[in-house]
């Protein structure tokens, strides 16, 4: 696929047998395609984060509301599908999106490091790059580390004091009664907000959605979406720890 100067690309190559990789492999080799996949997986993750926030805000409606919601997630698709099948279907898509997003980000970071082996010796004066865009790798790593802790805390219950499966309300309160944990949740969600701010704008460029008619709205959308997610997600540990018990 890559043309080299002086190479006869139209003529059959009789010397070296050309190894034809399947389409998906050659497609993934391209950095532009990796960015496209990061944008697509990012959209899936944005949708998940939004649904996750909306569901979790039910904690403010009381114990029964959120526990009923958690059970509904497991019942989803019944009676056509057995219990938890649809939930696991969604989880599979979500895990795949995470893996693609992280692996592509790692590989692109390595490419970019190789593209500038010698840094500038004098301080750089950034004219356009935002704090969010320059810290994507850091905020991404913070969110990933937090995610691992979050799963151990509220999904597996390993680090949750007296974890009771299915009783979301109790587990949540038990977790946020520890102030350092609540602080960690707030810090991680601020990092997530910064990550989303750049990602929600950047994805339009990576996908090639560009039209002068709506271009100014891409930034507005990114600010609005990041603000919404951050506000909702920070509100839960903040208010629960502050003693709000509906």
């Amino acid at each position: 696929m890559t043309k080299v100067a002086g190479e006869l690309t139209d003529a059959p190559n009789v010397n070296v047998p050309r190894r034809k990789a399947p389409f998906i492999v050659t497609f993934y080799r391209s950095a532009v395609a990796k960015k496209w996949l990061m944008a697509v997986s990012g959209i899936i993750l944005l949708g998940y984060v939004l649904a996750h926030m909306v569901g979790n805000l039910k904690v403010f409606l009381g114990k029964d509301e959120i526990n009923e919601y958690a059970d509904w997630l497991r019942r989803l698709g019944e009676p056509a599908f057995p219990r938890e099948v649809v939930l696991w279907g969604m989880r599979t898509v979500l895990i795949a999106a995470f893996v693609i997003h992280i692996v592509a980000a790692y590989q692109l970071t390595m490419i970019n490091r190789r593209a500038r082996p010698t840094q500038y010796k004098s301080p750089r004066d950034y004219a356009a790059a935002s704090f969010a865009s320059r810290t994507m790798r850091w905020t991404g790593v913070i969110v990933l580390l937090f995610l691992i802790f979050h799963l151990l805390d509220l999904t597996f219950g390993t680090v949750n004091p007296g974890y009771v499966g299915g009783n979301v309300y109790r587990n949540l309160i038990a977790s946020f009664d520890r102030v350092p944990v609540a602080v960690a949740y707030i810090v991680a969600n601020l990092a997530l907000g910064i990550h989303i701010f750049h990602g929600a704008w950047s994805m339009f460029q990576s996908l090639g959605f560009n039209n002068p008619r709506y271009n100014p709205w891409r930034r507005t959308f990114a600010i609005g979406f990041a603000g919404l997610i951050t506000t909702g997600n920070v509100a839960i540990p903040l208010l629960i720890t502050a003693g709000v018990r509906p």
Partner: peptide
């Protein structure tokens, strides 16, 4: 396809900072 693939032999990838536009 040809020009992007050729570019990627030598250069890094875009992270949408916008520094290029301002420079």
């Amino acid at each position: 396809v040809a020009m992007v693939d050729e570019m990627e032999r030598f250069f890094g990838s875009c992270t949408n900072h916008g520094e290029c536009e301002s420079a």
